[in-house]
C-alpha cells in the first residue's frame, strides 16, 4: 500500500459538509431513514479508495454528525432511543466491509499488473538468452563475427535481467518497511560513479556537473545508487538516436540537494510527465523500447523514502527529471581531522 495522503480526506469531508447542510434544510421532508442513508455516502466514498484508518475517521465524523444533528435529543451526544446505537454500529460495519473488500480488489489488481509486467520483462531477455544459446549449440556453420554478436546479445540480456532483479529486490526492501532503510553518510559523487560503473563503457556521452563543496548526505546508499542507475538507464533508453549528451547535475541548495538528469527527447505531454512515476506506467508512444515502468516507479519510491520530491518536465531540447532530497541531518565536517 502506498501512503494515504491527507489530501484524500478533502473530498469526503467536503461531501460530509454538503450533506449536512442539505440535511439540515430538508430533515422534515426526508425523514430519519433517508438522513441516515445520506450520511453513509461519505463513508462509502472513502471506503472505496482509502485505508481502514481513513474510513474509521470519516465514519466517526458521520456518526457524530448524525447523532448530534438528527437523533433526538437534537444537538446533544446523548441518545434516547437505544435503537440508534444499532444504526451507529451499522455505519461502522458498512465502512469496514467495503474498505476490506476494496483493499483486497486493489491488491489483486496490483498483483496482476506486477505479474504481467514481470513475466514480460523477465521473459523477453530470457527468451533472447535461450534462443541465442540454442543457435550457438545447433548451427555449426556460423561465422565468427555472428557468433560474437550472438554471445554479446546473450550477455546484454543477462545484464538487463540482473538490473531488473536488483530493482525488484530494492523495491521489496522499501515496501516492506522503512525500518529496513540503512542510513549512513553518503558521498553523492561516489554514488553517481558507482551507478555509472553499471553501464561499463556506454557512459562516455554523459556530462556530469557536481557542486564542488557538496556535503555528505544522510541516506540509504544502496537505494540512492539504484535511483541513479534507473534514472541514467531511463535517460539512455529514451534519448533515442540523438547525438546530444545526457547531463547530470548535482547542486546544493539551502535545505536540499538537487539532482537533475537531462536527456534529449521530443517534448512529452504534461499528463504523461506526471504519470511517468506511477507504478508500471509506460508512455504509449514508447511501446517498442525495452524496459518496464518499474524503473521510474521505484525512483519515486526511493525519493519518497527519503522524504524528497521527484518530477519530470520538458526542458529545452529534451526532458529533465529533477530530484530534490531534503537534508534532514546536516553534515558538519570535523575540521580537526583535516590537518
Amino acid at each position: 500500500m502506498t501512503h494515504f495522503s491527507y489530501k484524500n480526506y478533502i473530498i469526503p469531508i467536503f461531501l460530509q459538509l454538503t450533506i449536512t447542510g442539505f440535511g439540515m434544510l430538508f430533515t422534515d421532508a426526508l425523514g430519519m431513514v433517508n438522513m441516515a442513508l445520506i450520511h453513509l455516502i461519505p463513508v462509502l466514498v472513502i471506503a472505496v479508495y482509502g485505508d481502514m484508518k481513513a474510513t474509521m475517521l470519516i465514519t466517526t465524523i458521520s456518526v457524530i454528525l448524525f447523532d448530534v444533528l438528527y437523533v433526538p435529543p437534537k444537538y446533544s451526544f446523548s441518545v434516547h432511543d437505544l435503537l440508534y446505537v444499532w444504526s451507529f454500529i451499522l455505519f461502522y460495519a458498512v465502512g469496514y466491509i467495503i474498505t476490506f473488500q476494496a483493499i483486497r480488489l486493489r491488491s489483486n489488481a496490483i498483483k496482476d499488473i506486477l505479474l504481467n509486467t514481470l513475466s514480460h520483462d523477465l521473459k523477453t531477455p530470457l527468451a533472447s538468452i535461450l534462443g541465442n544459446a540454442a543457435i550457438l549449440l545447433k548451427e555449426k556453420s556460423i561465422s565468427e563475427a555472428d557468433k560474437e554478436e550472438i554471445a554479446h546479445q546473450i550477455k546484454r540480456s543477462g545484464i538487463q535481467m540482473n538490473r531488473l532483479i536488483q530493482t525488484l529486490l530494492d523495491s521489496a526492501r522499501i515496501q516492506n518497511s522503512k525500518a529496513f532503510m540503512r542510513y549512513e553518510w553518503c558521498d553523492i559523487q561516489d554514488i553517481i560513479g558507482i551507478a555509472l560503473q553499471e553501464f561499463n563503457r556506454d557512459d562516455k556521452g554523459i556530462r556530469i556537473a557536481i557542486d564542488h563543496d557538496l556535503p555528505l548526505y544522510w541516506g540509504d546508499e544502496a537505494l540512492l545508487i539504484r535511483l541513479m542507475v534507473n534514472l541514467i538507464d531511463n535517460a539512455m533508453k529514451y534519448s533515442g538516436y540523438s547525438s546530444s549528451p545526457i547531463r547530470i547535475s548535482v547542486t546544493m541548495q539551502t535545505s536540499e540537494i538537487i539532482i537533475t538528469v537531462f536527456n534529449p527527447s521530443d517534448p512529452i505531454p504534461k499528463t504523461d510527465l506526471r504519470d511517468m512515476f506511477e507504478k508500471f506506467y509506460r508512455l504509449d508512444s514508447t511501446g517498442d523500447i525495452k524496459g518496464s515502468g518499474i524503473g521510474l516507479s521505484i525512483c519515486k519510491e526511493i525519493v519518497d523514502a527519503h522524504n524528497g520530491y521527484i518530477e519530470a518536465y520538458n526542458a529545452e531540447g529534451g526532458i529533465e527529471v529533477r530530484v530534490a532530497l531534503p537534508i534532514e541531518k546536516l553534515y558538519t565536517s570535523n575540521k580537526e581531522y583535516i590537518s
Binding site: D190, G193, I194, L196, D203, I208, E221
Partner: peptide
C-alpha cells in the same frame, strides 16, 4: 567518505569516474 572525495578531486582526471580509487560498494 569525506577524504576519499577530496583526494579524488586532486588525483583523478574525472572524479565522477574515478580510475585510481574505486569504490567497492558496502
Amino acid at each position: 567518505r569525506t577524504f576519499v572525495n577530496s583526494l579524488r578531486k586532486k588525483i583523478e582526471d574525472d572524479s565522477s569516474r574515478p580510475h585510481y580509487i574505486v569504490t567497492q560498494m558496502r
